[in-house]
Every structure is written in C-alpha cells, then in structure tokens.
Design a protein around this nucleic acid. Structure first.
Length: 257
DNA sequence: ATGGTCGGCAACCGA
C-alpha cells in the first residue's frame, strides 16, 4: 500500500497537479494540507472523477486538511485540542486496520512571537494526544506538514538558519519526543544523507533550482507499520510543473495488503 | 533587463 502527503497551498489552485498525480501514482491514501477552502465548496467532485473518496476539514482562506483515499475512510477526529478548534489543522481517520492522522502544524511566524508559542503548544498537544490515545504497537501513521526541520541534514544552510523558526531547538525537541516515543521518520529510515527537501520558499529567487530547501513534511509510523516500508521518495518533478505548490509530494510504499 | 513569490480575496495576511 502507498501513502503520500502534499501541502497544496490551495487545493483549488493545484487541482490539475493533484488529479494528474493521483491518476499516475494511484496512492491508497493522500494527505493534503493548506487546502484553503471551506467545506461546502471543497472540490470533492474532482477527486471522485478520478476514482477517489475524499474527506476534509477546512476554513476560509487559511489552513485546511483533507484525505483522499481509494477506499472510503472513517473520520475519527477533527480537532487536536480546544485552542485549535475550527483551525482545520488536524484530521484523524481510520483506514482498514490502521489509523492515519493528517496534520498541518502552525508555521510559527518568528521565534519568540505569540504564534511561535502557539506552535509549541500545538506540538505538545499532538504528543500528548498520541501518547495517551495510542501504544507503540498500534498501527498508526502521522503524515503532513510539521513546519519543523529536525537536523542539520534537513535544511539547506543549517548554520545560517540555526535558531530561526522551523529550525529551533524547542520545536525540534517536541518533534523529537514523538520519535523517541516510537514513531519512525520513514524518509530518514531509507535515506541517511543531506540535501533531500520537501519545501522550497517561493520568496528565495530560484530557490528550487538552487535546491535551497527544507525537509519539513513527514510520514511517521509506529514500528509495526514502519517495518513494512520498502521505499520513500520525494517527487521533485511535481515542483517543476507550471504553477507548482511551494511543497512537493512525499510518498511511502508499505509492503502491506 | 527599470523587474524580483504565491493564494485568497478584496486590503492585506499568512506562509
């Protein structure tokens, strides 16, 4: 089975890219973030037209998460904690015998800002929720845009970016807690080296061409699931299409079913 | 070469 994640930076603006990708790659599950659309006008018909089911939790203008799936999924939860209600950053679903949590972690603006403090509370709440609701022998996947790069291997210029937002020790420590609890970073399981990114900031001139990127999108899995991952890849071609998102697709293949 | 990111959504905000 195949699972992927993609921060769309508007699902409506990215529909041609998403539907073509679904038809070519045929994942079982695709997690989407930053859909930026209210539920009543989510373009579900475009997903159904290429043979996918889709569930979503959105709001006007900002955030928004969705899961497209070949088989229907059941929505288990739409809010991580009280403070985040209505923010459309969290979507937990069940798929066959597994649970999938799709996250869009707050970006955090600047270290020391209120938004940064909120990002830390959000990551803490994610850890608490997962550690309370699951065991490490559960069949759990967490995928999405975490807005945190974990190690110097995961950003283009670790010395220059050290201590800044999305590469700050307080954020890294909270994401690290999830890994220490037992979740496996599936991309890192297969690729130990530097230079592999999932996000390139639009504001950096030729940032993609120069590979000035960040690895801030992840697919995490508990050990009983992670042991079946056979390959994980980043689709750099999708970043070369016309009108690309600033992120690209991250895909994990699991030798299951 | 007199420019230099996107998308949403209607003036800027968020990333």
């Amino acid at each position: 089975m195949k699972i992927a994640t993609f921060n769309t930076n508007s699902v409506r603006a990215r529909l041609p890219i998403i539907t073509a990708w679904l038809e070519r790659e045929k994942p079982d599950l695709l997690c989407l973030q930053e859909t930026k659309v209210q539920d009543p006008i989510f373009p579900a018909g475009d997903f159904e037209a290429c043979g996918y089911h889709v569930v979503f939790s959105g709001r006007k203008s900002y955030n928004g998460v969705a899961v497209a799936s070949g088989e229907p999924v059941k929505v288990l939860r739409r809010d991580l904690f009280e403070e985040d209600e209505g923010q459309a950053r969290f979507l937990e679903v069940s798929y066959r015998n597994m649970t999938l949590i799709n996250v869009y972690v707050p970006q955090g603006f600047e270290v020391g800002s209120d938004k940064f403090a909120y990002k830390l509370r959000w990551l803490e709440a994610l850890y608490s929720y997962v550690a309370d609701a699951y065991d490490t022998d559960s069949s759990l996947l967490i995928a999405g845009d975490f807005n945190v790069a974990l190690t110097p291997l995961d950003v283009y210029d670790p010395e220059h970016l050290a201590g800044g937002v999305a590469f700050h020790p307080d954020e890294q420590a909270l994401l690290r807690k999830l890994l220490d609890w037992g979740l496996v970073d599936l991309f890192r399981k297969h690729e130990p080296g530097p230079g592999h990114y999932t996000f390139w900031d639009y504001r950096i001139p030729n940032g993609f061409k120069r590979n000035l990127g960040w690895r801030i999108d992840y697919i995490l899995a508990t050990p009983p699931v992670a042991e079946y991952s056979s390959s994980v890849w980043i689709d750099r071609e999708a970043r070369r299409l016309s009108k690309p998102s600033d992120h690209t697709f991250l895909t994990a293949e699991l030798e299951l079913d």
